[in-house]
Design a binder for these strands. Structure first.
Lengths: 372, 372
DNA sequence: CTCTGTTGTGAGATCGTTCTCATATGACTG
DNA sequence: CAGTCATATGAGAACGATCTCACAACAGAG
């Protein structure tokens, strides 16, 4: 009933606390917490008084204090190479959508594919007491920091890369299969000399072993490697020879080397009649080179790429591509993470590998192998 | 010296606390805090012991507890319509880069241009005790929730939109000027009938007033409106008539209406010889329609757009555009925010309007006005 | 009438920091 | 020798929520 004290309100940063609500409702903090938290007992009369007081004051629980006490922050972390990359920003959108649904927020950290930054990121996120982390690990070998986080009980989901025996769930596209299908499509159109272009992690350049009967690539599962594997498998299965010069890896951190790599392949004595580009960067560079040199697509050279981007339907010919939905992959990663969170005690992560399907969009850049 | 207790470590979620460090160093919490916080006195000997203990334990201060006590969270919020939109993801990257530099993290929330979601977002971020917010407000009229936040002492910077008299700093491109220059460029090439296509916020469709001598558009400053203003000013200044049918607004939330709007303009009895598209969506739709219909660019129709995207140099002709660096705008917004944070007590935001320059990229889609 | 159980409430510990304040010691000054 | 400093440290109070526990009050059972 004291109307005078009400008018005085400190203007700067003074959200009402649970004490204010308790005082206004004439009950204790514990009772307010019980009513608002929806647990324990509370008489109907008290419940109404508390709810009324809370809404009168515009009370909103301080998340930080809540986290302090309960350990849950309703916040997850997303660690990626570069949020301005469409793959990650789309995945981010998927993650955010799921998080919103679960009442969580998302903190983003870019690593620029630097291991040190990734290590720092996991530490910072742990210090922020995030409930879990979705990460696209820089390296599939050096991931001690991730294992440490998992051991500390922090749920982690790996996006677009699979960490073997790290006990981390992962969400990946069916890269190998999709590539097999795509290359088979080219083979089906009569192509025999099919070039393969891919970006490669500078730290772990792929090592190819090309034998008479078999070709293989060493290293753990990661998109670029799995796609080479798909290429090798499709070629081998079709009984086609694997030529070293038809496989080109461009270091991820040397964008300026992409066009030269494409040029080099096009200037081969026995030029490939089809090109499979394993990522959007190389699809773009390849298309640009082809277009600049006036090489007819698909008349002289067919082009088939991985990843769909806005421009692929804007250019002529429209580019045929294998699509992986980064948005769906983001959603899947978040779903997986919240599933782990749901199990009260974060059950020992089983290291489940969730494979997200890809789609083949047959457009205009692939044609029959030109006859000579 | 007790080596047995050391071996026992709880595996789940048990980061060492400042108490552990204090115990190991044989000092009090306060001393540890002083050494680690770098303030007050501490003897060289104690300092070393503390530092040693902290590093032995791998101690990292709990950010949540720190926030609890100090009020600073080293976290800022970014509220945008859709993080998967290149404009926002690039801005986000800029914000993250600056934040990283300042030792802060960024929480992203998508609003899908929904006012209710934006209101919820500001509340949640306040509850998370973020140090400040960068926001691209859905509406430049209904922003009570933003004013409330500012009044509560939460620094806010508005990105890409200016809120008049809300006391909020803003970062915007020089939309009007850039458009004047761009349209002047078209006029300089002899064009007289220049079409203008833009997206419009569904809630506040622009109202045009077209008089004999003057044309104007009502409403507060926001990119789409400022660009129409630029168009009107350039046309008026050049003494060219403003024709209502040459100005088309497509509701932002109706992507399916874009192509029809372009078609409608191209089928005008006296078809425009040049088109200025005020945002990337319409640039894309316009290019697609032009290309599908086989209309020669710039032979029959010239095209000039706002915003640069990957595809504009991949297609033929390459599209001439006005570029605003969303990355730089993001950086500028973050710089502004941290500048406010720096002033100990967040000085009353002056409502400063920072204008980020644009660049005109003259490529191949603009040509001389065809003679009939 | 005592005992047990349900319902309702509050006191107070707790989470891990930061930071104020009190206190202690030695050195130096007048 | 008392008084004033600078140096060095620790005790303990916040911050705002959650949640355990203790305790009432009252019902119904034995």
């Amino acid at each position: 009933m004291s109307s005078e004290a009400e008018g005085v309100r400190r203007s700067k940063r003074s959200q009402p606390t649970i004490n204010d609500v308790a005082a206004r409702a004439g009950v204790s903090r514990a009772t307010v917490s019980r009513v608002l938290g929806g647990y324990g007992y509370a008489s109907e009369e008290v419940r109404e008084r508390v709810l009324g007081a809370a809404s009168d004051l515009g009370y909103e629980a301080d998340r930080i204090a809540r986290t302090m006490r309960s350990g849950r922050s309703d916040t997850i972390g997303f660690v990626c190479a570069d949020i301005s990359d469409p793959f990650f920003s789309n995945a981010m959108r998927g993650i955010c959508d799921v998080a919103l649904d679960k009442g969580s927020q998302v903190i983003v950290i870019n690593t620029d594919d630097q291991l040190t930054q990734e290590q720092a990121a996991t530490k910072v996120l742990a210090a922020h007491k995030v409930d879990g982390i979705i990460i696209t690990p820089v390296s599939v070998r050096q991931h001690d920091h991730i294992v440490v986080a998992v051991d500390d009980g922090l749920p982690v989901v790996s996006l677009d890369r699979h960490l073997s025996n790290a006990g981390v769930d992962s969400i990946v596209a069916d890269n190998e299969h999709a590539t097999v299908d795509a290359v088979n499509h080219l083979i089906g159109r009569g192509h025999r000399r099919i070039g393969f272009l891919s970006s490669a992690q500078p730290e772990e350049p792929p090592v190819l072993r090309i034998g008479a009967q078999r070709a293989s690539v060493s290293g753990p599962s990661r998109p670029s490697l799995d796609r080479v594997r798909g290429y090798l498998r499709a070629m081998t299965t079709a009984g086609l020879p694997i030529a070293r010069e038809l496989i080109s890896f461009v270091p991820q951190d040397e964008p300026e080397s992409r066009a030269p790599a494409v040029v080099e392949m096009l200037e081969l004595p026995d030029r490939p009649t089809a090109l499979f580009t394993a990522d959007s960067y190389l699809t773009k560079s390849t298309f640009a080179v082809l277009s600049e040199r006036g090489i007819a697509v698909p008349g002289e050279v067919s082009l088939l790429g991985f990843d769909d981007l806005e421009w692929t339907t804007l250019v002529r010919p429209r580019v045929s591509v294998v699509v992986q939905s980064s948005y769906e992959m983001g959603r899947a990663a978040a779903d997986r993470l919240f599933a782990q969170l749901g199990n009260g005690h974060p059950a020992a992560p089983s290291g489940t590998r969730t494979v997200v399907p890809t789609t083949f969009l047959d457009r205009e850049s692939v044609g029959a192998c030109p006859t000579r």
